[in-house]
Design a binder for these strands. Structure first.
Length: 554
DNA sequence: CGATCCGGCGCC
DNA sequence: AAAGGGCGCCGGATCG
């Protein structure tokens, strides 16, 4: 289906399994209503240009859909798989490529926009397919059929189809989550800020920050020093005879100087004040809900990003303001040790997978191979997955290599491929972007010279990136499949997902639905493991807590 | 002057 | 314990 430009209407058509037309084109004046009716009738899979562009408007009109195929997200996945990462992905671009026409650039992403801006038309996109100079519905048919063909040609078509389904479902969840919003008590937030910072001042920092600034100046014997200017702080330490390379908290913590304690406290509070203080609350919290804009697939690894609001990094200290509605509860589910478990599943290391059948993977590994030293086992694993090169992890890494050579070699191989400017893929087939060196060799203009994730820096940095990519991207896929499964399980109840942070999902539900939601979450985790990895010994346990306030989780 | 870079830190 | 992966956001510093 496609919307009309800047209006409320649109066109719909049934498609066959191969993407060809299987019915007449229907023009409707009320597209949201037509979609709602059809959804109620037979729950089709909606093929549309972009969930991010269309679905928020449907939700505002009170229409939810069960399944979709997101052409834009799928196009990006297929481009990446073909080694052409980053080429334009919009319907217009996909159609042009298919027809051998000049490929238009994608429209720039919208600006982050705090909620409360009125929508003129239901579907307002002025640059999207609706306003294009071609038959958008025809383009949907063509591009969809072509994508189905290209899907079949991927390395593991079954897995890639799951990836496309999960990515599309994730886009639905992201829009629904942004629509629902996270329950947020502005009054408690204000109270918390006052406890931490003192009352807000008409101009300038709140009282506690001013006090700390004075303490820091007193400790340095200085006047007018800005604690939030790293350069000034480094110079002040130098005058006091202390050489520090920077002012990072973990560096300062090792320094013995009276300015350190107030500086560390200042950093913590300053961050809360600027990033999650009163101004943030005014901008992003309305009607008792924090409504960020999620960007499913916004990170190269497939993790979600957000546009504004910082929903993925709500400081622990302010989570006391996240309180369930009266008579409602939060079910907070967190996948413990997700990334090492994913490594166990994808590497095919049977011994490692056996250890990952346990509830505490680190403890199991420690008992087997690290003389019971759980901390050492954890350091070794994290070092292996992130590409640590020095420090205390080195001997631990050696133990890991000796005891779990298959898993170890898996990440080592990914690193070598990256260092040689090659491409690596997740389990389902999401492909990492090429290195800038590879782009140059192909005669393409390398992206921003200093993007380290693409390997603009050293080959070793590229190796660390690809090493981590295979694990992080697969973990993101597991989480996406969990979300999609849970979403289906929650249909027909009042429960709704209100927060998702990489490996953690929060469901807001009436108290009498808690039991059912907890069961659904556990089942969804098991299903996600099965859908991705089939018959594996690896388990993906969830830590689940039921709380009235998010801060009380775990 | 605005645009952009960068240090720093929040989260996973 | 050390400082390795991925982000977003803020303000200061710097550039044009």
């Amino acid at each position: 289906m496609v919307p009309d430009a800047g209006g409320r209407g649109g066109r719909l058509q049934d498609l066959g399994a191969d993407g060809t037309a299987a019915g007449p084109v229907r023009s409707v004046a009320d597209l949201a209503g037509a979609i709602g009716d059809r959804e109620a009738a037979d729950h089709p899979r909606w093929v549309w240009p972009s969930t991010a562009e269309l679905y928020p408007a449907l939700l505002r009109a009170g229409v939810r859909v069960g399944r979709c195929h997101d052409l834009e997200l799928t196009e990006a996945l297929l481009s990446g798989h073909a080694g052409r990462w980053g080429e334009p992905r919009a319907l217009a671009a996909a159609r042009a490529r298919l027809r051998g026409l000049p490929v238009p650039a994608d429209p720039p992403p919208r600006q982050a926009e705090p909620p409360g801006f009125a929508q003129a038309a239901l579907f307002e996109s002025s640059t999207g397919p609706a306003a294009a100079d071609f038959d958008a519905l025809e383009a949907v048919r063509e591009v969809y059929a072509d994508q189905l063909r290209r899907l079949a040609l991927t390395e593991h078509p079954g897995r890639f189809r799951l990836l496309v389904a999960a990515e599309s479902a994730g886009a639905l969840v992201g829009a629904e989550m942004g629509h629902a919003g996270l329950p947020w008590r502005a009054d408690l937030h204000d109270q918390l800020m006052r406890e931490l910072l003192g009352p807000p001042q008409p101009v300038g920092p709140p009282r506690r920050l001013a006090e700390l600034t004075a303490e820091i100046n007193a400790a340095f014997g200085s006047w007018g020093l800005h604690p939030d200017s790293p350069a000034e702080v480094v110079r002040a330490f130098a005058r006091a005879g202390v050489d520090v390379p920077n002012t990072r908290a973990w560096v300062l913590r090792k320094v013995d100087h009276p300015a350190v304690r107030p500086l560390l406290e200042y950093k913590e509070l300053y961050r809360i004040w600027t990033a999650h203080g009163w101004a943030w609350c005014d901008a992003w919290v309305s009607d008792g809900r924090f409504r960020p804009e999620y960007v499913p697939g916004g990170v190269v690894s497939g993790r979600w990003a957000t546009r504004g609001g910082g929903a993925l990094q709500v400081p622990k200290a302010v989570r006391r303001a996240v309180v369930a509605d009266p008579g409602w509860q939060f079910v907070v589910a967190d996948a413990g040790q997700l990334e090492p478990r994913v490594l166990a599943a994808i590497s095919g290391d049977a011994r490692f997978a056996a250890a990952a059948a346990a509830g505490d993977l680190y403890a199991e590994l420690a008992a087997n191979s690290f003389d019971g030293d759980r901390a050492k086992a954890k350091v070794a694993l994290i070092g292996a997955m992130y590409g640590q090169t020095g420090g205390a992890a080195i001997p631990a890494l050696a133990v890991l290599r000796n005891h779990y050579p298959t898993a170890f070699e898996f990440v080592e191989h990914a690193a070598r491929v990256g260092e040689a400017n090659g491409l690596v893929r997740s389990w389902l087939g999401r492909t990492c972007p090429p290195s800038s060196a590879a782009l140059r060799d192909a005669g393409l203009d390398p992206p921003e010279e200093s993007d380290p994730s693409l390997g603009g820096a050293s080959g070793r940095a590229r190796g660390r990136f690809t090493r981590n990519f295979v694990v992080q991207a697969t973990a993101a896929e597991w989480a996406l499949v969990l979300l999609a499964t849970l979403r289906t399980a929650l249909e027909g109840s009042k429960a709704e997902m209100v927060l998702f942070v990489h490996d953690e999902v929060v469901v807001h539900c009436p108290a009498d639905e808690v039991e059912r939601v907890v069961a659904a979450v556990h089942e969804s985790a098991a299903t996600a493991g099965r859908l991705l990895f089939g018959d594996t010994a690896v388990r993906f346990p969830l830590d689940v807590s039921t709380v009235g306030a998010y801060a009380d989780a775990k």
